[in-house]
């Protein structure tokens, strides 16, 4: 046993968990590689299409496990590097953004009714963009999840696609947005939204790989952590405020939530700050 001086217990525990997940993902990738090789050999022996398609299926799965392992390893190294306390950067999402060639990337978990259920963002810009999408109820992540296909827009086109969202993005100094659906064989659980990635990356297929790794291994796999090591925000204060407001103005909680979003949009503030004022009793909406 080694005793680690200085670093907080919780960050070394998280690093340890991430190393373990990375090792498991690499093991699964290796296993898939063995399956693929076996089918490749059989394909050569028999010339049967069946084995060729099985081999490529196993190769794709292996790639996904490797991408997941890399995300876990990046996270583990970061946790070992520096102390992370309250208000620290979202370390896992920072790694996700980096894998996508940017500083700004966000993951949105979306329900079957297309409502945002939770959000994780790498930085303030991507979080503000997700907030905007949340209050508008429209934007690239929602569209990618709804249509289960990647969505991309740049510059003035962003505003044309999603009125109100594009101007907000421009005021954040962001111009290109790409949203990848997080698809499963039975549906879609959300979207990965990437802002202003390095040129050429959007076409390279790397976003697909990261989105698939997040879906299959990080969020839904056998050793999944749907909280992304604490990066996922369920917007608790917004929902508390919606509950309070629905009691105060005697309306359904969904309507109360809509009131909060509308006020946030009108004032150009994050929904959390409106909600905080409702919860503390400083703001009465009706």
């Amino acid at each position: 046993m080694t005793v680690e001086g200085g670093s907080s217990n919780s960050s070394s525990r998280r690093a340890e968990a991430a190393w373990q997940r990375a090792a498991l993902a690499r093991e699964r990738a290796a296993q898939q590689g063995v399956h693929a090789e076996r089918h490749e050999r059989r394909a050569e022996e028999t010339g049967r299409e069946f084995h060729t398609s099985m081999a490529s299926m196993h190769r794709r799965t292996a790639d996904r496990h490797i991408a997941a392992a890399r995300l876990q390893e990046t996270f583990a190294r970061r946790m070992a590097d520096g102390p992370t306390g309250r208000g620290a950067r979202p370390v896992f999402m920072t790694g996700v953004a980096e894998a996508c060639g940017t500083r700004s990337a966000a993951l949105t978990l979306i329900g079957t009714d297309l409502s945002q259920l939770a959000v994780a963002a790498s930085d303030r810009l991507s979080r503000t963009a997700q907030d905007l999408e949340y209050v508008l109820g429209a934007g690239p992540a929602r569209e990618a999840a709804r249509d289960r296909r990647p969505v991309a827009a740049v510059g003035p086109d962003v505003e044309k696609c999603w009125p109100g969202y594009g101007s907000g993005l421009a005021s954040l100094g962001l111009s290109l947005v790409v949203a990848m659906p997080l698809t499963t064989p039975v549906g879609c659980i959300g979207a990965l939204t990437v802002f202003d990635p390095r040129p050429g990356l959007a076409e390279s297929g790397v976003f697909d790989e990261v989105a698939a790794a997040l879906t299959d291994s990080v969020l839904l796999g056998p050793d999944a952590d749907a909280g992304l090591y604490g990066d996922v925000d369920h917007r608790p204060v917004v929902h508390q405020a919606a509950g309070m407001l629905s009691e105060q103005v005697r309306c359904p909680v969904g309507d109360a939530l809509a009131l909060i979003k509308a006020r946030a949009f009108a004032l150009g503030e994050p929904p959390e700050s409106i909600a905080q004022r409702i919860v503390s009793g400083d703001l009465k909406l009706s």
Binding site: L117, H234, P236, H239, Q240, M244, L245, S246, E247, V253
Partner: peptide
């Protein structure tokens, strides 16, 4: 995810 939302909303209602 839905449970988290419902619990927070119900907390807000009861608190108020």
């Amino acid at each position: 995810l839905n449970s988290r939302v419902l619990v927070e909303q119900a907390k807000g209602m009861l608190a108020s």
